[in-house]
């Protein structure tokens, strides 16, 4: 059941208490939320309002003691306006919206993504590390080059402590393997014997490639992917600007996380997205 942890309200103003350059063109923010809120679940998102500029969905990287962590990559006027914000500035938060990842037990957890997609995957990783079941966690992160890898130190550190296995790759070979993370993933799947679940977030074309790889292996018992990178207006199921065909599912409340069985039914997956007019555009 989707039970929103914050009631569905107008934006609640939160204060930026920390800002740092996470990697090239991407900044991390800690935002203090002034009302008592229960924990965010991995995969959920917020609508971030930059007063006077724009509002858009953003993944949740962490949430503890009423402090929210997000990562914002420069992609347009709205994200740039956030990046130009500083400690002490106020921004509006609506959410937490959407259905979360639902990791089963007794499987290998294979977490793969790139760019802004790493944000919800960071919270998923934290969540899995806190669980009592100790299963293997593998992170497959890819980026164009080393300076564009999000949470590099954070994942590397957990790898060094042997809490997870960090498979990192860059297109130019400046860090980790040279190539795409999907290649790493497939290498791993070929060798592994254990039942696995794939979790993915990031550009939809990449997710499509991952989905097609995952389907080839019986040991992949499920795939859970985030569709949060879509145009949204309301965030709570009213406007349908984020809806996918032919199922009529709204990404914001029926998703943004869908499982393999659901993804199979979404013909728009990897093919079309809606823009502000409601028109479909090829991905």
């Amino acid at each position: 059941m989707t039970k929103q942890t914050l009631p569905n309200t107008k934006p609640i103003m939160g204060r930026i208490i920390k800002k740092w350059e996470e990697c090239e063109d991407t900044f991390g923010f800690l935002i203090d939320i002034p009302v008592k809120v229960k924990g965010a679940k991995p995969g959920q998102f917020i609508m971030l309002w930059i007063p006077g500029v724009d509002e858009y969905p953003i993944g949740i990287a962490d949430f503890e003691n009423n402090v929210l962590e997000i990562g914002v990559s420069k992609m347009g006027v709205g994200t740039e306006a956030m990046i130009n914000k500083n400690i002490g500035d106020l921004v509006g938060i609506r959410g937490f919206y959407g259905k979360p990842f639902q990791p089963p037990n007794k499987v290998n957890h294979l977490i793969i993504g790139g760019g802004f997609g790493m944000t919800p995957l960071k919270l998923l990783t934290t969540y899995l590390l806190l669980r009592e079941e100790k299963e293997e966690i593998h992170i497959f992160e890819g980026a164009r080059s080393k300076n564009r890898l999000m949470y590099l130190d954070w994942f590397q550190n957990l790898h060094d402590q042997k809490k997870l296995v960090f498979h990192v790759s860059t297109d130019d070979g400046s860090y980790g393997y040279k190539g795409f993370p999907t290649v790493d993933l497939e290498d791993f799947l070929q060798k592994s014997e254990t039942p696995s679940v794939i979790y993915a977030a990031g550009p939809e074309r990449m997710m499509k490639v991952i989905f097609d790889i995952g389907k080839k292996y019986q040991k992949v018992i499920d795939m859970q992917m985030s569709f949060a990178d879509r145009y949204m207006r309301c965030g709570f199921g009213l406007c349908s600007y984020c809806a996918v065909d032919p199922t009529g599912w709204r990404i914001c409340v029926d998703g943004p996380i869908f499982n393999a069985k659901q993804i199979e039914q979404i013909e728009d997956f990897g093919n079309y997205r809606r823009i502000e007019t409601g028109e479909k555009q090829r991905i």
């Binding site: 509002e55 858009y56 028109e279």
Partner: peptide
């Protein structure tokens, strides 16, 4: 955006979508 949000205290919604549509 913001073009739609809820006003919880009066169980209502305010919007200014402005007739966005594909034609």
């Amino acid at each position: 955006n913001p073009s739609i949000f809820a006003l919880q205290e009066i169980k209502s919604v305010i919007n200014s979508v402005g007739l966005a549509n594909p034609g």
